[in-house]
């Protein structure tokens, strides 16, 4: 009872999603595999591609952690937009700083 009253009064839906253990373990296996790949790729002397490959893999790993472990998958739109805004602002810091550094 308490719960329903609360949710109505505050417009809340206190969440209740459940994810099986299996999904988490699969994601973890993927993360470990990506770690192995990134170490291997780094040893291959690809020149300037090394950094690109390392960062791409790091981004994929981060997305996996965020989407499954941090439950962004189940979050409502507001949190997703928040994350997008945060990343966008962070990206502009990089672009504008490098508009100086790379043309100096």
């Amino acid at each position: 009872m308490e719960q329903t009253h609360e949710s109505r009064a505050f417009g809340t839906e206190n969440h209740s999603h459940t994810v099986g253990y299996g999904t988490y373990i699969m994601v973890w296996l993927g993360l470990v595999a990506l770690t192995a790949i990134t170490v291997t790729v780094a040893g291959m002397h690809l020149g300037s591609l090394t950094l690109l490959a390392a960062l791409t893999i790091a981004c994929i790993k981060t997305s996996l952690v965020a989407y499954y472990f941090m439950h962004v998958k189940f979050d409502n739109m507001v949190i997703k937009v928040f994350i997008a805004v945060c990343l966008l602002i962070f990206l502009t810091f990089w672009i504008l700083t490098f508009s100086d550094l790379s043309f100096r």
Partner: peptide, 29 residues
């Protein structure tokens, strides 16, 4: 269990930061 969820979120963030620190400091051959 929101407090546990929040602790989890924090822990995952620490993990994510390491995911970037690792290639940037260790894999630059």
């Amino acid at each position: 269990f929101q407090k546990l969820e929040n602790a989890g979120l924090y822990w995952h963030l620490v993990d994510v930061i390491w995911i970037f620190l690792f290639p940037l400091f260790y894999l630059l051959h």
